[in-house]
Simulated assay, not measured.
Amino acid sequence: METTVAGAPPTDLPTDVAALLPSPVPVQLLDAHGAAGRESHGDYAMPSDERLLEVWRRMVLGRRLDIQCTALTKQGRLAVYPSSRGQEACQVGAVLGITERDWMFPTYRESVALFTRGIDPVEALSLLRGDAHCGYDPTAHKTAPQCTPLSTQLVHAAGAAYGERRRGSDAVAMAFIGDGATSEGDFHEALNFAAVFRAPVIFFVQNNKYAISVPLAKQSKAPSLAYKGIGYGIRSEQVDGNDPAAVLAVVDAAVEHARAGHGPFLVEAHTYRLDAHTNADDATRYRQADEVTEWLAKDPIARLQAYLEGRGVVDQALVEETDAEGERLATDLRDRMNVDPVVDPATLFDHVYAEPTPQLREQRAMVLDELAAEGGDH
């Protein structure tokens, strides 16, 4: 497929089809060493230093909290934790590309995205701790509960975005998804619905190369996952997911596209999961150490820090100040997670239905009777 400019459509395709195609190579504004190759890539301009500084800061804080969360699993304070280490540019860039009035639909791996969204880390970890299905107020934060089943949240995102459009709102929905989940039926149903009804939703695929232990080569034969949007008539793009500047620039374009009424937008971010799938996974069984080492050299935090240091935006004093802030947040999280939660078994039956069914009331009464017979010791 011949192109003249990165991001430009092939000349032998109809204009309406060509406009849907992603760039032939992932959009990149910063190389692995933090050098800017040029100020734009196709239609993507370099974000301002001010915005990139906030991305860098949020990535540093998010990684420190992520590392603390992994430690909490070893201390028995979290039942399970899917680390985001290495994928910070995707999660932070995507979140900072939307506003407080926009909706976010996370998966179980989006803890850093939830922290960036301003959600209390202890509330964000309630699901993974086993305390509740969702520890934060979805309506207050415009953030749906973290979704463990693959792709089901995409249908919710498409419906919520369509609902906002029907209300006359210009709010959009940001829906996260992993590479393996693009093989699920709900992924295709969500894309089709969103395209037909022009729902303002951004499908953000974090292609971290593995669906647990299944490599991408055994998941899809598409040139890239970004091409999966074309069959549904969805504008699509692929981006270097370890380049924070490029992620933010592409998300900006996707949000502008959706907010302007042009329908959904599919983004594929090429990134890598540095840690195991979860603390219960042994990644050495399906990938080699040199592969991980190669991706360590593409660290999104180091890349953006090098760029900002070169522009005089970040210095050693700011690095130390931000690291210290991260340590304070990690200490606070550790201290609060070490306090045993007070759990009322009766809350198991809350929020199952808007109006409890007779069966649910019966089950609740049965549990309360059993607890009373045991002397009320929960």
Rank of each mutant, 00 (worst) to 15 (best):
R38E: 12
A211Q: 11
V250Q: 08
E294C: 00
V112W: 08
R64I: 06
A211W: 14
V80Y: 08
P14F: 05
S111V: 00
A280R: 11
Y81V: 01
A94Q: 05
D369W: 09
A246K: 08
F176L: 02
L13S: 01
S151I: 03
C69K: 05
M174D: 02
V267F: 04
A79V: 11
F265S: 03
L216V: 14
D240N: 15
V196P: 03
T99H: 09
A324Q: 13
E39H: 10
G118R: 07
H41T: 02
T4L: 14
A226L: 05
L329H: 11
A171W: 07
T148H: 02
V313R: 10
H141T: 13
C90N: 13
P358F: 12
T139V: 14
Q75C: 00
V339I: 15
S84E: 11
V267N: 04
V313L: 01
R85I: 14
L30I: 07
V95I: 13
M366H: 14
E110F: 04
A246P: 03
R58Y: 03
F265I: 05
P121G: 06
H270I: 11
V201Q: 06
S111M: 14
P345Y: 13
A317W: 09
D31W: 03
R51G: 00
T271D: 05
M104W: 03
V92R: 04
G62C: 05
P26M: 06
Q363P: 00
V339S: 02
M174Q: 09
L78N: 06
P138H: 10
A373H: 12
I202G: 03
I67R: 13
D186C: 01
A249T: 09
A283E: 12
L371V: 15
A6I: 11
E291Y: 05
E321A: 12
D369C: 00
Q219V: 12
V343D: 01
Q238S: 03
P244E: 10
I212Q: 11
A32D: 15
D335S: 10
V60A: 04
T271C: 08
T293L: 08
G159N: 11
G375V: 09
A35E: 14
L72S: 04
E237Q: 14
V251Y: 10
A194K: 07
A94H: 06
A280V: 07
T15K: 13
H262W: 02
L304D: 06
Y353T: 11
G261Y: 13
A32L: 03
R235Q: 12
P24Y: 12
D344L: 10
A283D: 15
P356R: 15
G135C: 04
A373M: 10
H351M: 07
Q87E: 15
K142A: 09
V55K: 01
A19Y: 08
G326T: 10
P106C: 03
T347E: 15
P149F: 10
L191F: 06
M1C: 03
